[in-house]
Simulated assay, not measured.
Amino acid sequence: MEMRVVGIDGGQDKKALCLSLGVDVFIDFLDVKDVVRAVSDLTDCGVAGVIVTAASRSAYEQGAQMLGIGGTLVPVGLYVQEDLALAARKQIRAEVQCFPMEQAEAVFQSKANRYKGRAALRLE
């Protein structure tokens, strides 16, 4: 699919970690003034997806600005403690259907509205 993975973090230790995990390009936000511009210089029309692992507003804002048309932002780095407290107070729960890994292809090929809530794969 000719996609490249861009890691964005700060410092040489994080660069080494990201490169060891297989990123194609590392952008150090401590050295680069305009991270969004640096990412857009690597693409023709924005990125297909952004996974935000940082719990900062600017990371989400920049991540959204990097997306191309139809791109997806995946929020991973939320304020976990606050989110859990909110969920506890509001009695929020998620509907999840779990499937064995052997059914992964069938799960991915099925229509999204087939499942109540979210589909998840067990890694056991």
Results as ranks from 00 to 15, higher is better:
residue 88 A to G: 09
residue 98 C to W: 00
residue 93 R to S: 07
residue 41 D to P: 09
residue 92 I to L: 02
residue 85 A to S: 12
residue 40 S to F: 13
residue 92 I to E: 04
residue 86 L to D: 09
residue 25 V to F: 12
residue 39 V to C: 13
residue 46 G to W: 01
residue 56 S to K: 14
residue 73 L to N: 13
residue 59 A to L: 12
residue 89 R to M: 07
residue 40 S to V: 12
residue 53 T to K: 07
residue 51 I to M: 09
residue 81 Q to T: 13
residue 108 F to P: 14
residue 92 I to G: 01
residue 56 S to G: 13
residue 85 A to C: 09
residue 93 R to T: 14
residue 73 L to A: 12
residue 80 V to P: 00
residue 53 T to L: 02
residue 25 V to W: 06
residue 68 G to C: 07
residue 53 T to F: 05
residue 106 A to W: 05
residue 76 V to E: 14
residue 79 Y to D: 13
residue 76 V to R: 15
residue 79 Y to H: 14
residue 113 N to C: 10
residue 45 C to R: 08
residue 25 V to T: 05
residue 89 R to C: 05
residue 99 F to V: 11
residue 50 V to I: 11
residue 53 T to H: 08
residue 92 I to Y: 04
residue 86 L to W: 11
residue 34 D to E: 06
residue 68 G to W: 15
residue 109 Q to S: 11
residue 89 R to D: 10
residue 78 L to W: 03
residue 33 K to L: 11
residue 101 M to R: 00
residue 36 V to E: 02
residue 50 V to N: 15
residue 32 V to A: 02
residue 78 L to M: 15
residue 112 A to Q: 08
residue 90 K to I: 15
residue 94 A to W: 13
residue 83 D to H: 15
residue 32 V to D: 01
residue 40 S to W: 10
residue 92 I to T: 12
residue 82 E to L: 03
residue 47 V to D: 06
residue 89 R to N: 04
residue 24 D to V: 03
residue 80 V to C: 06
residue 91 Q to D: 02
residue 95 E to F: 15
residue 48 A to F: 12
residue 112 A to V: 13
residue 39 V to K: 09
residue 91 Q to R: 14
residue 104 A to L: 00
residue 105 E to P: 10
residue 75 P to I: 02
residue 79 Y to V: 14
residue 30 L to F: 01
residue 88 A to S: 09
residue 54 A to W: 05
residue 58 S to Y: 04
residue 29 F to W: 10
residue 91 Q to W: 00
residue 59 A to S: 15
residue 70 G to R: 05
residue 107 V to E: 05
residue 95 E to A: 14
residue 31 D to Y: 03
residue 104 A to N: 02
residue 36 V to F: 02
residue 66 M to K: 09
residue 76 V to S: 15
residue 110 S to I: 04
residue 98 C to T: 07
residue 91 Q to E: 02
residue 25 V to I: 10
residue 82 E to C: 03
residue 73 L to V: 07
residue 52 V to R: 12
